[in-house]
């Protein structure tokens, strides 16, 4: 009698660790598919896609690319709405910036558990390594992820499994524990050696984390958004716009988002039906959006800020087009602000 092929679902981020975890499990004859969660904060593609659309150097989605290298299917889930609860009310708090890593991992493993139950898969695989990350991958927090997600011993971490109690797939003999690994700590050397063994040469370099919430600059802009709104709730457009342009807040009730290149200008232009749009008309210069509740004097100040970042910054006057979301455009002739007229604390 042939034994049934066991099926595992792997959390695939696009980085090396999840790639290795999948390969280790594939080597044991397990059918593996991948899942990747889109929270809206993923570093993937966005800024690259927006800025300087260089069609000769197309940006790839790392998770998709990794899945293709591994020969597995990848399921990408849009969790933008559900993720708000995780980010706004993390039970375990934030990391160095606004990254709720431990709650985030619990959430993702819980979603993976729902998925395997709905699709007849047997267990979950992640590329986590004890001690690799300060918040979510410590010896005392790995069990928290398993417990709070409800996955318990259906959660297998092949790269550090030998440092953890045996999971169900190991106890049942679906996978051979002795062929799993005992990596620990922040060093990347064991992963790199394993990558060489598997012949994996091209992979995304591990950075501070897999999303913008670990980015200090991004966290400042998100905290600013929360401070100046009646509630901390946010929409996908809010968090995408935080990745684009220079954000300048001259007053609590409005801010100006100034494009840094043509690609960003085109992207901001897509919001012309939602927010007032400023475009430099009389000379080359950036496009900008005004977010908040600006009055006419604020819009004029915003136009002067935009003029400061254009080619006409040294001219006495520059013409700026002001488009209203409801339709209609006005032309403003404004004096560009001088650099010293933009206080440092306006720049987010």
């Amino acid at each position: 009698m042939t034994r049934p092929v066991r099926k595992a679902l792997a959390l695939v981020s696009g980085g090396l660790d999840s790639m290795l975890a999948v390969r280790v499990i594939q080597e044991q004859g397990i059918h593996v598919e991948g899942i990747n969660f889109f929270t809206g904060f993923c570093v993937e593609g966005h800024t690259h896609a927006i800025r300087n659309r260089d069609r000769n150097r197309r940006k790839r989605n790392n998770a998709l690319w990794v899945a293709e290298q591994l020969g597995i299917r990848l399921h990408i889930e849009d969790v933008v709405e559900e993720y708000k609860e995780v980010l706004l009310y993390p039970r375990h708090g934030y990391g160095a910036h606004l990254n709720p890593c431990l709650d985030c991992k619990v959430f993702m493993v819980r979603k993976a558990l729902e998925w395997i139950r709905g699709h007849g898969f047997d267990f979950i695989v992640t590329g986590e390594v004890i001690g690799q990350r300060p918040m979510s991958q410590r010896k005392d927090t790995l069990p928290v992820v398993a417990r709070e997600s409800g996955a318990g011993d259906l959660l297998l971490r092949p790269l550090c499994a030998q440092n953890l109690p045996p999971t169900l797939p190991e106890r049942e003999g679906w996978v051979d524990r002795s062929a799993l690994y005992d990596f620990s700590g922040r060093t990347r050397k064991p992963q790199m050696a394993l990558a060489r063994r598997f012949g994996i040469e091209d992979y995304a370099q591990p950075a501070g984390g897999c999303c913008f919430l670990t980015d200090a600059q991004y966290a400042v802009k998100l905290a600013d958004l929360w401070r100046h709104r009646p509630s901390r709730d946010y929409g996908l457009d809010d968090i995408l716009l935080l990745k684009v342009g220079r954000h300048i807040r001259p007053a609590p009730h409005f801010k100006v988002i100034v494009a840094r290149d043509e690609g960003e200008g085109r992207y901001l232009g897509g919001y012309r039906r939602q927010l007032p749009l400023l475009e430099t008309l009389s000379c080359p210069g950036p496009t900008a959006l005004v977010d908040g509740d600006p009055d006419p004097a604020d819009l004029e100040l915003a136009a002067r800020i935009v003029a400061r970042y254009g080619k006409g910054r040294d001219l006495a006057q520059v013409e700026i087009g002001l488009g209203h979301p409801q339709g209609g455009e006005r032309r403003l002739r404004v004096a560009p602000l001088r650099p010293h007229e933009i206080p440092a604390d306006w720049l987010l």
Binding site: N36, F38, C42, E44, G45, H46, A49, I50, K59, N61, A63, L64, H75, I76, E77, D78, L240
Partner: peptide, 10 residues
């Protein structure tokens, strides 16, 4: 923006 077009297709 990436990866939303893929998600919508999927």
């Amino acid at each position: 923006l990436c990866p939303l077009p893929v998600i919508r297709v999927q």
